[in-house]
Design a protein around this nucleic acid. Sequence first.
DNA 1: GCCGCAAAGATCGCATTCAATTTTGCCTTG
DNA 2: CAAGGCAAAATTGAATGCGATCTTTGCGGC
Lengths: 229, 229
Amino acid sequence: MSTNLTRSDAIYASLRRAILEQALKPGTKLPEDSIGDTFGVSRTSARNALVRLASDGLVEIKPNRGAAVAMPTLEEAEEVFALRRCLEREVIERLCKRMPKDGIDALVSHVREEERALRASSPRSIRLAGEFHILLAELTGSKLLIDFISQVVSRSSLILARFGRPHSAECGIDEHIHLIEALKNLDPVAASRIMDHHLHAVEDRAKADEKDDGPDITEILSRYMSASE
Amino acid sequence: MSTNLTRSDAIYASLRRAILEQALKPGTKLPEDSIGDTFGVSRTSARNALVRLASDGLVEIKPNRGAAVAMPTLEEAEEVFALRRCLEREVIERLCKRMPKDGIDALVSHVREEERALRASSPRSIRLAGEFHILLAELTGSKLLIDFISQVVSRSSLILARFGRPHSAECGIDEHIHLIEALKNLDPVAASRIMDHHLHAVEDRAKADEKDDGPDITEILSRYMSASE
DNA sequence: GCCGCAAAGATCGCATTCAATTTTGCCTTG
DNA sequence: CAAGGCAAAATTGAATGCGATCTTTGCGGC
């Protein structure tokens, strides 16, 4: 039961981390050969990993044209955050109804780790900020909810990589701390309010300075093709 | 752009339909060879399709032990329906805020088709019942919401295949009609109430007569090993 | 008669190989 | 010199072969 890690699992995990930590930026092409070479395996394994990342929405695969790190549009970004608010409200509600006994401790220690990573300017901080929300979902005990939250959180990270300012942590740690306080008091109203505010803040941070290198070249260049300059 | 159907796409679609229409029952083993043979392709394509179905939660893949149609547990079933209520409430809210102009027509004509399939006792009716809810999600215009609803609806179908009575349509058509009425009146309260009732009804129908053919044969046979007969 | 072990069979993970499609560069032609 | 077309390179889609792992089954010892 220990060696149940297939190679494509390893590649999947590595690629995923690389994308979530913004080492691989949106739009980066991911040829199967290169991936296979760099990981020392064949294309088959790389392909398998890419297929799974695609159904996570982290990469886009176009037939006969290869895979690339997904480039969410602003429209998709709004969809993600809207749905994320819906799902995280559900998390909050459930946690206020029933919080595991050492749940608060787990949250606190996670935030501590976030602070450490942030002070060290580690790229881990980007991923840890997202994982705070996944930890919240885990405390509900619902496998499915964890799955879904993971999906929207991953996509949020991608959106921040695409639009947000470089190396900005996704979440303000202060807001995480406030949220923990509200949860400790089992106050669903306050907690929901903080969460909504928090997610809106993240969304604003994301849309702050849209570094526009759109997915479609023609669309971009159409703005540059009038006259000279 | 027409021949953009790769073979694994075709297999993926076929398997998915077969599962959702309950032709392939939960627990059925899906060896790569057999699938490749029956579809006239190699294991590679079959494998690719299976991986995608796995991330949809429709099949389970265990390393070195093969793939099989997923067998959701009762616990997972409750998670699915809980989350589904959360998501479908969101759909209802959005539709009451903004319903596309020919949305009602689309819903009505879909229900008509459901009725036709049901009268014909076609296995399509099972799938159509689920697709009513997907159509609702489509009317919101949010790709992501469509995705997520599709996931929970698919899993619901699987749950009904696993626990529900054979060939029962997933949804009562009457309830669909009532829901359309509430939506026509843009009444979010009534619509939500109907939807909640509807989903609870589906859930009850699912758990009605748990035909226990557990994954473990011994458990089943234990009921047959007392005395003779 | 029961338990453990080893060989056989089945199935999968992965690599290699072949085929199809897209892209790119070059050449011809008007 | 620009435009169109053709061929070569690159990249993916799919197939096949081999080794590894798990399951099953049959045998022998206790």
